[in-house]
C-alpha cells in the first residue's frame, strides 16, 4: 500500500496563519470601521480617501490574505470543534468537505471581488 502524504500540515499552517492574522488585525478593523465610525464615536478619513485606500492594490492584496486565511482558520477549527464538541468524528469526510469547501468558495468570491474593484 502506498503511503499517502498527509494534507494535515498544510491545513494546520493555514489555520495558524489565519489565527495570527485575525488576532492582530480583526479587533481594530471591526472596532474602528464597523462599530465606532458608524456610531460617530470617531471620524474616518474623507470618503474619497477611504475609496482610494480600498482600491489600492497592496491594500486589496493584504485584505485578500487576511480574509483567505481567516476563512481557512474557521474551516479547520470548526471542523475539529464539531468532532470534539458534538462527537461527529464518524462524519469526518463529509465535515471536511463542507468546511474546507465553504472556505474555498468564500476565498474565491473574495478573490473575485477584490480583483474586480478599483
Amino acid at each position: 500500500m502506498r503511503a499517502r502524504r498527509s494534507r494535515e500540515p498544510i491545513l494546520w499552517a493555514l489555520f495558524g496563519g489565519g489565527g495570527m492574522m485575525a488576532a492582530l488585525f480583526l479587533p481594530v478593523l471591526l472596532g474602528v470601521l464597523l462599530v465606532a465610525a458608524p456610531m460617530g464615536w470617531i471620524e474616518l478619513v474623507a470618503f474619497a480617501d477611504l475609496q482610494v485606500l480600498v482600491r489600492n492594490p497592496l491594500v486589496r492584496l493584504g485584505l485578500f490574505g487576511l480574509v483567505f486565511l481567516s476563512f481557512f482558520h474557521w474551516a479547520h477549527r470548526f471542523r475539529y470543534t464539531l468532532y470534539d464538541g458534538l462527537q461527529l468524528s464518524h462524519l469526518n469526510e463529509l465535515i471536511a468537505i463542507l468546511t474546507y469547501g465553504v472556505a474555498t468558495a468564500l476565498s474565491l468570491t473574495a478573490g473575485y471581488l477584490l480583483w474586480s474593484i478599483g
Binding site: 478593523l29 464597523l34 470618503f47 477611504l50 481567516s70 482558520h73 474557521w74 470534539d84 478599483g118
Partner: peptide, 28 residues
C-alpha cells in the same frame, strides 16, 4: 469550546469587511 467557536466570529468579520469594501468601492 467558546474559544474554539470564536472561529465563527473570525469568518463573520472577514465577510463583513468584504461587504464594507464592496460598498465603499460602489460609491458614497
Amino acid at each position: 469550546i467558546s474559544r474554539e467557536l470564536t472561529c465563527l466570529l473570525v469568518a463573520y468579520v472577514a465577510i463583513l469587511l468584504l461587504v464594507f469594501v464592496a460598498a465603499v468601492d460602489r460609491g458614497e
